[in-house]
Design a protein around this nucleic acid. Structure first.
Length: 398
RNA sequence: GCGUCGGUGGUGGAGCGGUCAAUCACGACAGACUGUAAAUCUGUUGCCUUCGGGCUACGAAGGUUCAAAUCCUUCCCGGCGCA
């Protein structure tokens, strides 16, 4: 069971800077960005490289590791952290996101963050590889088509074996296109699953070495989000995850509805959010932890963060720019390599390009969240945010 | 020299009388990506356009035909075989 302490709150907002101490003695300074290593590896990176970025936490995925290599093998290895040679704090996601990504989202070109506001029922429960019922989620493995039932109980059992310091209750991540009625029904189910997750986890973790986070859902509806914050918030979780869908524009406000109601003395993790502006807004709205695949996936796809916005390293102009991705950046990549070299590696389809780009993007996001933390402690958050947006999103400056 | 097979858009390579500005792949040029089915996916890729269409194109030049990248003739170039 973790200990969370708040060092400083930013007046007039829900933002706070604090420290989490895990049951195993790991320390996390919050707000913190959690690096995603779905299959017990941060894609294209070694554990040594993750350490050299001063990452604080790594998050793996229960569904993926359950299918391959299997939770028992990870348990024998001593947990996924040790398995991958990562000895810092760890988290696992419950598999609840895959109810969405392999269900409603599968093949439908919908992402977790809605760009439009079109609400249509593409049937959140009729996905091709995942079907949701009150009992749990029936997955058809994307690897071999075999069927697997995930329930709150089985997710807790698998996460116990995977051995992370912090784990999540089993929930249903709904589609941003799901209408109110479905969100409501799903929310009720996620609440039941939260109770079942708590009960099963209590049986497994008798010495309280793992912390369990409950997940708040509710889609884009204020009424549902607040209901979820109250009901999940009242349960005996060690922290909370805020999951599901938002629109790009109201990540901050919707998260604020939730955090205004969640118990203040427990950490709040915003699941799957990790673009710079979203991080500022979410911190301001009271979130302490974030995990996101965006920095690493975008890196592999050649989209690199700079203070002046993202650049596409494959664009022709970069072939002859013999300067770092960002002048003054202290990451390994920028200290040793040029845009031209990265442009070449990406064009030549060389793996090292993915590694160097991932190092850079993770460094950018990790340092950004660190600076956000410092700005809370220094009371310079608003100035820092304004300054950042002016350069990164000049079109949004007001 | 004789014979034979071939010469198609940035590249490879389909097409073998009309539905061909020409399948497809690669490359190129852009874009997307937010609890990772993702080192993936999408769009564009002869020139011009008032987006209806127009123009120039399948080695070169002639020819047959209502119609040719596709058939015929000659020439040029390349591979192979025989001298």
């Amino acid at each position: 069971m973790l200990k969370f302490s708040i060092q400083k709150k930013l007046e007039g907002t829900l933002a706070r800077a604090g420290t989490i101490e895990t049951a195993n003695g790991g320390v996390i300074n919050t707000p913190a960005f959690v690096v995603v290593g779905t299959k017990a590896t941060v894609k294209a990176m070694t554990a040594e490289q993750i350490r050299s970025l001063d990452a604080q936490v790594v998050l793996a995925n229960t569904y993926h590791l359950y299918l391959q290599p299997g939770a028992d093998i990870i348990a024998k290895a001593g947990g996924f952290g040790k398995f991958m040679d990562w000895y810092g704090p760890t988290m696992t996601d419950s598999g609840g996101f895959q109810a969405f990504s392999l269900g409603a989202a599968f093949g439908n070109n919908v992402s977790k963050v809605a760009t439009g506001v079109a609400v249509e029922d593409i049937s959140a429960h009729s996905g091709q590889l995942a079907q949701v019922s009150d009992e749990g989620v029936m997955f058809k493995s994307h690897l071999d088509g075999s069927k697997h039932l995930f329930t709150p109980e089985s997710s807790m059992e698998a996460q116990w074996k995977l051995g992370a310091d912090m784990i999540f209750a089993f929930d249903e991540c709904t589609s941003p296109t799901a209408p109110y009625d479905y969100q409501k029904k799903s929310l009720d189910r996620t609440l039941e699953w939260a109770k079942r997750s708590l009960a099963r986890h209590e049986e497994l973790d008798t010495e309280k070495t793992q912390s369990l986070f409950g997940v708040v859902q509710g889609g884009r509806f204020q009424e549902l989000r607040e209901e979820a914050a109250r009901t999940i918030g009242a349960l005996d979780f060690d922290g909370f995850g805020i999951g599901g869908s938002f629109t790009k524009d109201d990540i901050g406000t919707a998260v604020g509805w939730v955090n205004a109601l969640l118990p203040e003395d427990k950490p709040r993790h915003l699941l799957g959010i990790g673009e710079p502006l979203d991080l500022f807004n979410a911190v301001e709205a009271g979130c302490d932890l974030f995990d996101c695949i965006a920095p690493t996936r975008m890196a592999r796809h050649g989209s690199l963060h700079t203070s002046d916005g993202r650049l596409h390293i494959k664009n022709s102009r970069y072939q002859t720019e013999f300067v770092p991705i960002e002048e003054g950046c202290e990451c390994y990549t920028c200290q040793h390599h040029t845009r031209a070299y990265l442009a070449h590696l990406f064009r030549a389809d060389e793996m090292t390009g993915a590694t160097l780009a991932s190092i850079h993007n993770l460094h950018f996001i990790l340092r950004l969240v660190e600076k956000i933390r410092e700005s809370i402690l220094n009371d310079t958050f608003h100035e820092y945010k304004k300054e950042f947006i002016a350069r990164y999103h000049p079109e949004k400056e007001n």
